[in-house]
Design a protein around this nucleic acid. Structure first.
Length: 460
DNA sequence: ATGTAC
């Protein structure tokens, strides 16, 4: 009998599993056979409270015990944008709005299923933060640099520009720089939490890296479509990057989400990723401090990438725009200070600029928020996936994708088949579904695209 | 999303 057998008996991961292992070994050592041990464990799983005073079984029973969870009868108010959203994603935002701490919600037109809160989900809470409503990649964000140089230089400088994308950042799970880069954020006090203290060195090695998944760096043509950007109309060379807080942010999410889950053990399994920490408790304050540090760290990642590339491009900068799209903020809505989680959603307060990327072969947009209160000042963070990575690998071939890329005038340096344009919704449809959330000020057409190579584990 | 997890 092993750990997997315990999981099959219904013992959840975490403390319960540790106590169950200890108890199981003790029973075997006491001479019981396997059926007897299984019966003993199943009895505790079935009715934990009756073992609270049993010295051998109390710790397991307490770890297994789950108080009743009563979702709110009346959900916190929420609205959705887009009419073709996955019913599972809609169920997820409704579940989030049924939490006792929920204040209001919104679902963006690029929404799809995620852990806890859907991607494209916005949730305002009172005095509480939900690590998985921020997401694994804390402070995943966009940054766009528009150069004072016409986009028509791209074909003639293709190899040189491609070389910059290949060498001024790193892709792959666990990727690091051999010679670490520097940014002022690394001189901050990382001992604000045990986890950021422990990961300071790792974070330093990963500074300026891009990682994997949907992260990218690309050169493209930026077209001004609205005079309010205050740059002359035209098509400019531009650099767009998408990445976040790498392994460090993922660890922060993992540590505090587990603490939240053990604290909110009334949440049923299906909702456990919505576990929250209140801002009154030490863990909540630690998460808040770590999350904000991850925000500055992710911004530094982009800053380093753009600084290094810009130096070698050798052009003046006309415009820099950036925004988080996985983060939580203290904001005032409907007269109350609340915590607004945006997980795959772009801040779109009145007049606030943001970037909504499409895919490797479709446009991304620079937008200006309209401050729509019903969306909690938010918009989509992209086009939104419409299929899993596994399904994508079965659905597409490189030969077909290459034609598509050629038609769009895109040079793809590397990517997996699970990131090709067909795995995303049509960005134009998504933009059309949120005209009451943002105005479009400019368009970015990708021309040279670098993503994580397929099957890549760690790039050298 | 991440070199994950027990």
């Amino acid at each position: 009998m092993n750990t997997q057998d315990l999981i099959n008996l219904g013992i959840p991961l975490g403390d319960a599993l540790k106590f169950a292992n200890v108890h199981m070994r003790r029973l075997f050592a006491g001479g019981l056979d396997r059926p007897q041990v299984e019966t003993d464990l199943m009895n505790i799983v079935a009715d934990p409270p009756s073992y609270f005073n049993d010295p051998d079984r109390a710790s397991l029973a307490r770890a297994l015990y789950r108080p009743a969870y009563t979702p709110r009868a009346e959900l916190a108010p929420w609205q959705q944008w887009g009419d073709d959203l996955d019913p599972e994603a809609i169920k997820q935002i409704a579940n989030a709005c049924a939490l006792p701490i929920a204040f209001a919600g919104a679902l963006m037109p690029d929404a799809h299923v995620g852990y806890g809160l859907p991607i494209g989900g916005v949730l305002a809470t009172e005095n509480a933060v939900i690590p998985y409503a921020v997401g694994v990649d804390i402070a995943c964000r966009m940054k766009l640099t528009v150069y004072e140089r016409k986009a028509n230089v791209i074909p003639g400088q293709k190899d040189r520009l491609a070389n910059l994308l290949e060498h001024e950042t790193r892709f792959g799970m666990g990727c690091e720089f051999e010679v670490r880069r520097h940014h002022d954020v690394m001189d901050e006090d990382w001992s604000i939490t045990p986890i950021t203290k422990r990961l300071h060195e790792k974070a330093w090695k990963q500074l300026g890296t891009s990682g994997s998944g949907n992260h990218f760096v690309e050169f493209g043509a930026f077209t001004v479509t609205d005079p309010s950007l205050n740059i002359p109309p035209g098509e400019y060379l531009a650099l767009l990057s998408h990445s976040g807080s790498r392994g460090t942010g993922a660890q922060v999410c993992d540590v505090y989400s587990k603490r939240a889950m053990s604290r909110r053990n009334e949440l049923p399994n299906q909702l456990k990723h919505l576990a929250w920490l209140t801002l009154d408790e030490a863990d909540g304050q630690e998460y808040w401090a770590a999350m904000n540090l991850m925000g500055r760290y992710a911004a530094a990642n982009h800053d380093i990438i753009h600084r290094h590339i810009t130096k070698k491009v050798g052009a003046h900068i006309l415009l820099d725009i950036e925004n988080h799209h996985n983060f939580a903020w203290k904001e005032t809505h409907h007269g109350r200070e609340v915590i607004v989680h945006r997980k795959g959603a772009t801040p779109a307060g009145n007049g606030v600029l943001g970037i909504i990327p499409g895919s490797m072969a479709t446009p991304g947009y620079v937008v200006r928020g309209k401050g729509n209160p019903a969306s909690l000042n938010s918009a989509s963070h992209g086009a939104g996936r419409i299929m899993s990575r596994t399904k994508a690998l079965q659905s597409f071939t490189w030969s077909a994708v290459k034609k598509q890329l050629k038609n769009a005038g895109v040079d793809l340096l590397s990517s997996g088949l699970d990131e090709v344009p067909g795995v995303y919704k049509d960005i134009e449809t998504v933009m059309a579904a949120q005209t009451d959330l943002v105005d479009i000020l400019g368009r970015f057409d990708p021309k040279i695209v670098k993503m994580c190579p397929p099957g890549e584990k760690a790039e050298d």
